[in-house]
Design a protein around this nucleic acid. Structure first.
Lengths: 344, 344
DNA sequence: CTGTTAGCGCCTTCAG
DNA sequence: CTGAAGGCGCTAACAG
């Protein structure tokens, strides 16, 4: 009639409220909600009724605290969610860990190392179960579990540098080599390169693949055909113009990611040029571009799933660490229907 | 020399460990970590030193539990993260709440109502501070805060149906009306429609805009020009073929989202047709498609930011609820450089 | 089958 | 300026 504790109005009801309502102890409620067999059918029914009446739901945070368990959350720090590659990566992670009841906290570093550092620290403080990160640079100290309350870490798209964690990457070297090779096989000798910062793994491996393919074909590297710091499509377009404005411009370009491919394509279209393109990353409109385009394709979602798998294995067994997985790439040639031949 | 509690090895150090290490009470550590002025400089220094030595970081979950605060996490449930529209939406949310120190838990419903229900329930149990959802259908009962432990909710891209929550949407009707109108102004009389399920707000509003524009121009609706259930690009391509295979096919199509636009474009390209397209959603390659294309454009990231703003206002003041915001749209015409005229 | 006790890691309150 | 007591919501471990 006159309960010692006021009925909850705006605040969330607690297990105690349910217990009071069902005239049992909080412990019995706890058991009932856990589907513990040791609860009498009568009590169980009254408890479930009270739960429904009060709109109660168990506070998982408190539960996890008590059980010493963690949050059931995986942190994902990526450089640019707007890039479809990372979107697919995130989707792969989300679908894999989602099947295990884990959820994903996504944050965008915007390729800012300070923000990346801040985000992973925040994730560690929040006691997320683990972290999958696409590092924005080759500076990885802040990604060391030793600096993150031993939170398990998996790197995606880049191997660890001076730290020991699992990682999943693409065959950046091989894919680039093979795609550059197709340009050479079509008769191109003057091949430009639109790349990523040399300080990143991806940037340096893809450049290495390009160099190796040229070297094997006995083609000398020409610095004036090479631009390596285009952060966005507009910069890539501009860089392409500066390359093609030169005397004896290249007849083909290798573009090191989808941003550069699209930028290069825009420039080539603008000038009505016939420069061929081979680029890393497939994308939705690659087959519609009305010119012969070779792309290095791979399963980005699979990359995410594999990263998630490694992380989940670490959650079960924290000792296994330092593995490296490589997701294979394949080369696809588009634009066969075009009038263009793709030959110089 | 012989502490009563063993030194932490694998388990995370706690405030007590820091206190022992610095020879103070846990309370002083708590104050120091909170930058409470009432701590002597000497103690503060020793505490910070101990924190560094132990690799300690405060357990935010426990802190939030004690403070009665919630998790500092915002749930985002969207239908398809692979669609750039939703990616931008998520980015807008992430950037807005990130400035307030909140993080985002992202989940993909895959347009599955059961999964959507399951996800929002999970989010409520995890005591997320709030939820932004793009509902997959017009069934919204499970999105009612009353059923979600009073978690604040904001709907994006759809108004609430039989529940009272804030929402942010696009001018679906107006944008479609205006774009369809441009087709009519160019002389098109036979205009097809590739739409979304009629059960969704977006699907029905965009169809309504199409109908209104035709009606005002005195054009009779032709069912045989209309397809309304293409879940992906392939289905849209197929639907376009079935429309264009008919005698007296339409000379133009309105496509109700980017999936349909792309599918229609592929079909039109495949058959070397000259059908004009106007579509909802701008996309990256819209200007490169080599045919006159009219798109309904809008700031998807802004939509996310506004949704986040409404949610954050609710966190401060839970009483304000039921607001509706509309993000304006604008019509952009691409393809001016093409040989095509865009006229029938 | 059910209740009591105690404590997860932290912080508010109140004494020193 | 510092510490002790108590409890946020929940649940192991132990009584009954």
């Amino acid at each position: 009639m006159n309960p010692s504790r006021p009925a909850p109005t705006t605040a969330s009801p607690t297990m105690r409220d349910v217990a009071d309502h069902a005239n049992v102890s909080p412990m019995t409620v706890s058991r009932a909600l856990r589907d513990d067999p040791g609860v009498s059918p009568g009590n169980r029914a009254r408890i479930l009724h009270a739960v429904a009446a009060l709109g109660y739901r168990r506070n998982e945070s408190a539960r996890n605290l008590r059980l010493g368990r963690s949050t059931g959350l995986i942190g994902v720090v990526i450089t640019n969610l707007a890039n479809p590659f990372y979107t697919q990566l995130a989707l792969g992670i989300e679908s894999y860990v989602g099947e295990k009841g884990l959820r994903v906290v996504v944050a965008n570093s915007g390729e800012d190392i300070d923000r990346e550092r801040q985000l992973v620290n925040d994730f560690a403080s929040r006691r997320l179960d683990g972290l999958i990160a696409v590092p924005t640079s080759n500076h990885h100290q802040h990604l060391d579990p030793a600096n993150l309350a031993h939170m398990p870490v998996v790197l995606a798209a880049s191997p660890p540098h001076r730290i020991t964690v699992d990682s999943v990457m693409l065959d950046d070297f091989g894919g680039t080599w093979e795609a550059t090779r197709t340009l050479i096989d079509r008769g191109h000798h003057r091949i430009g390169f639109l790349g990523l910062p040399a300080s990143t793994w991806t940037g340096s491996e893809r450049f290495r693949g390009y160099c190796a393919a040229l070297e094997e074909a006995g083609i000398t590297l020409q610095d004036r055909y090479i631009r390596r710091n285009q952060p966005d499509v507009a910069a890539a377009t501009h860089a392409t113009h500066t390359i093609l404005d030169q005397p004896h411009p290249p007849t083909a370009l290798f573009t090191a990611n989808n941003r550069n491919t699209i930028g290069a394509y825009r420039a080539i279209r603008d000038r009505n040029a016939t420069t061929a393109i081979a680029g890393f990353d497939d994308f939705e409109f690659a087959d519609l571009l009305q010119l012969p385009l070779t792309v290095v394709s791979y399963d980005a979602r699979q990359l995410g799933r594999e990263a998630a798998r490694l992380l989940c294995e670490q959650l079960d067994n924290p000792t296994i660490v330092g593995r490296r997985l490589v997701i294979p790439t394949s080369v696809i040639e588009y634009g066969q229907r075009s009038d263009w031949t793709g030959r110089p």
